Simulated assay, not measured.
Amino acid sequence: MGYYLADDIYPRWPVFLKTISCPIGERRVLFAAKQESARKDVERAFGVLQSRWAIVKGPTRFWYKEVIADVMYACIIMHNIIAEQERGHVTDWVDDEAGSSSSTATSPVTRGLPMGFGAVLQRQASMRNQQDHTQLMTDMIEEVWNRNRRR
């Protein structure tokens, strides 16, 4: 299960990796600084994408992960193309005469529920486990500490 970088307004669920508001100890101070920096970078990036494409604003809880990834990659690529053109660095695009991309262009995007609704309910329950949240926080603090200690 993945997680979101979040601030203190979110509940203590393992899907939210929250900021430590008053960190005590070197490990927690380092973790709080790294987490806050990463969270702000992600918020800025999503803000840019949300201002340009409405599909990024909407809920995606019941979408397939692959569809979410495809939508995000498409928005990021289009953003980068637009940014290049606005800077005056227009890219020369070569049309694909062989038609290799046309076969994928006609395939529909599939949205929908995962295979079993029971799996959705089980995932919902596991998302709210506060003990898992505490364990995730402990594990992530140690991971950040170990990665930065090696440098």
Results as ranks from 00 to 15, higher is better:
residue 37 S to M: 13
residue 37 S to G: 10
residue 37 S to Y: 06
residue 37 S to Q: 07
residue 37 S to D: 11
residue 38 A to N: 11
residue 39 R to S: 14
residue 39 R to F: 01
residue 40 K to I: 13
residue 43 E to M: 09
residue 43 E to K: 11
residue 44 R to D: 15
residue 45 A to C: 04
residue 46 F to W: 03
residue 47 G to Y: 01
residue 48 V to E: 03
residue 48 V to R: 02
residue 49 L to F: 01
residue 49 L to C: 06
residue 50 Q to A: 04
residue 50 Q to S: 07
residue 50 Q to T: 02
residue 51 S to H: 13
residue 51 S to Y: 03
residue 52 R to D: 03
residue 53 W to V: 06
residue 53 W to E: 01
residue 55 I to G: 07
residue 55 I to H: 01
residue 55 I to Y: 01
residue 56 V to C: 05
residue 56 V to Y: 00
residue 56 V to L: 01
residue 57 K to E: 01
residue 57 K to L: 07
residue 58 G to A: 14
residue 59 P to M: 14
residue 62 F to Y: 12
residue 62 F to Q: 10
residue 62 F to L: 12
residue 62 F to D: 15
residue 63 W to D: 08
residue 65 K to H: 10
residue 65 K to W: 06
residue 65 K to Y: 09
residue 66 E to V: 05
residue 66 E to F: 00
residue 66 E to M: 02
residue 68 I to Q: 12
residue 68 I to C: 11
residue 69 A to L: 11
residue 69 A to Y: 03
residue 70 D to P: 08
residue 70 D to R: 14
residue 70 D to G: 12
residue 70 D to Y: 12
residue 71 V to A: 09
residue 72 M to N: 14
residue 72 M to V: 15
residue 73 Y to M: 15
residue 73 Y to V: 13
residue 74 A to R: 15
residue 74 A to K: 08
residue 75 C to D: 03
residue 75 C to R: 09
residue 75 C to K: 03
residue 75 C to E: 01
residue 75 C to W: 00
residue 75 C to M: 10
residue 76 I to Q: 03
residue 77 I to N: 05
residue 78 M to H: 07
residue 78 M to V: 06
residue 79 H to R: 12
residue 81 I to E: 00
residue 81 I to D: 00
residue 82 I to K: 06
residue 82 I to G: 02
residue 82 I to S: 11
residue 82 I to P: 04
residue 83 A to K: 07
residue 83 A to H: 07
residue 84 E to F: 05
residue 84 E to Q: 03
residue 85 Q to G: 12
residue 85 Q to F: 00
residue 85 Q to H: 11
residue 86 E to G: 06
residue 87 R to T: 04
residue 88 G to W: 00
residue 89 H to C: 08
residue 89 H to I: 02
residue 90 V to F: 00
residue 90 V to N: 06
residue 90 V to T: 09
residue 91 T to E: 09
residue 91 T to Y: 07
residue 91 T to D: 03
residue 92 D to R: 09
residue 94 V to N: 05
residue 95 D to V: 10
residue 95 D to W: 09
residue 96 D to I: 09
residue 96 D to R: 00
residue 97 E to F: 07
residue 97 E to R: 09
residue 98 A to M: 12
residue 98 A to V: 13
residue 98 A to Y: 06
residue 98 A to Q: 11
residue 102 S to R: 15
residue 102 S to T: 15
residue 103 S to M: 14
residue 104 T to C: 07
residue 104 T to H: 11
residue 105 A to L: 15
residue 106 T to G: 03
residue 106 T to K: 05
residue 107 S to M: 08
residue 107 S to Q: 12
residue 108 P to T: 10
residue 108 P to S: 05
